[in-house]
């Protein structure tokens, strides 16, 4: 690590001030990505603005048609939450499959979503469920939030405070883990809301994305058979030592079918 300062604000307003007072400050949530990056000297922030002591940034609350998860809520809490398990079991399952117990007890939903790792699980939940990202400045629809590899619609200094998930009629999440890291080599979230269906894919491309063709087919008939091979062209998918783009394209179809089957119970 290079040397850095650390600030411990206790309110969202103080966070802004702390950031303003730093030359090159960076938010520290659960640190599951940032700390390894710092240890490898791949980042050199002047200050870390720790969010650990900020009031009101943690917890889960269920409303009538949505569930809101505060940004600093760790994955283990989401996985174990009774409301989420009964209303959106696919989300609880997704959170329970992130990393290992250490990661799940330190890593946070806000940190994961803000980082937008192409192989992370949460972006698939946020996009697939059509969640709303609530920030210190505004509300951002999932469709407008993920803008590219490790890139989001967040402005400089804008802080995610909570994520609001609408409760679907049915949803399923299937992850095919990378054998080395167990991040998503490919993972698919499928969610059905009345007459609309959302399909979000993570791990396969540079950024989480929706598959319109699958969504249309599933809207017509919410059945695994509606998913045909070749609905996602391989051309723009990731290609690396763990999986070729052709294999990823194939997996998207297989996993989407399985996600639909899971959603249908």
């Amino acid at each position: 690590m290079y040397d850095f300062g650390i600030k411990n604000p206790t309110s969202v307003d103080d966070v802004k001030t702390a950031l303003g007072e730093s030359d090159d400050g960076q938010f520290l949530a659960g640190g599951q990505t940032l700390i390894p990056v710092l240890k490898q000297r791949l980042a050199m922030p002047s200050d870390l603005i720790s969010l650990a002591r900020v009031d009101g940034l943690s917890g889960i609350s269920a409303g009538g048609d949505s569930i809101s998860v505060k940004a600093m809520t760790c994955h283990a809490e989401v996985a174990a939450n009774a409301d989420i398990k009964s209303a959106i079991p696919a989300l609880a399952k997704l959170a329970g499959g992130i990393g290992d117990p250490h990661v799940r007890n330190r890593g946070t939903i806000g940190g994961s979503v803000a980082n937008n790792d192409p192989a992370a699980d949460y972006p698939a939940a946020v996009l697939g469920l059509g969640a709303t990202v609530v920030t210190s400045e505004r509300e951002i629809e999932a469709d407008n939030f993920f803008t590219g590899m490790f890139d989001t619609a967040l402005n400089e200094g804008e802080l995610i405070t909570e994520i609001s998930f609408p409760i679907p009629e049915a949803a399923g999440y299937i992850k095919f883990p990378n054998p080395a890291t167990r991040y998503a080599l490919v993972a698919v979230m499928v969610a059905k809301f009345g007459n609309t269906v959302r399909v979000a894919v993570t791990g396969a491309g540079p950024c989480v994305f929706r598959v319109a063709e699958m969504e249309q087919a599933l809207t017509a008939s919410f059945s695994p058979d509606s998913i045909k091979d070749g609905m996602v062209p391989a051309d723009d998918l990731n290609n690396d030592i763990h999986a070729s783009r052709e294999y990823r394209a194939h997996l998207i179809g297989v996993l989407a079918r399985r996600a639909v089957a899971e959603a249908n119970g």
Binding site: P179, A180, T181, I241
Partner: peptide
């Protein structure tokens, strides 16, 4: 048999240089 592989590319760069890429 199933996952471990030290992979060098043709130019001699080690591609599996960490547990992010070398599967145990």
């Amino acid at each position: 048999a199933l996952m471990e592989n030290i992979h060098y590319d043709e130019s001699g760069q080690l591609v599996t240089g960490s547990l992010m890429d070398y599967a145990l």
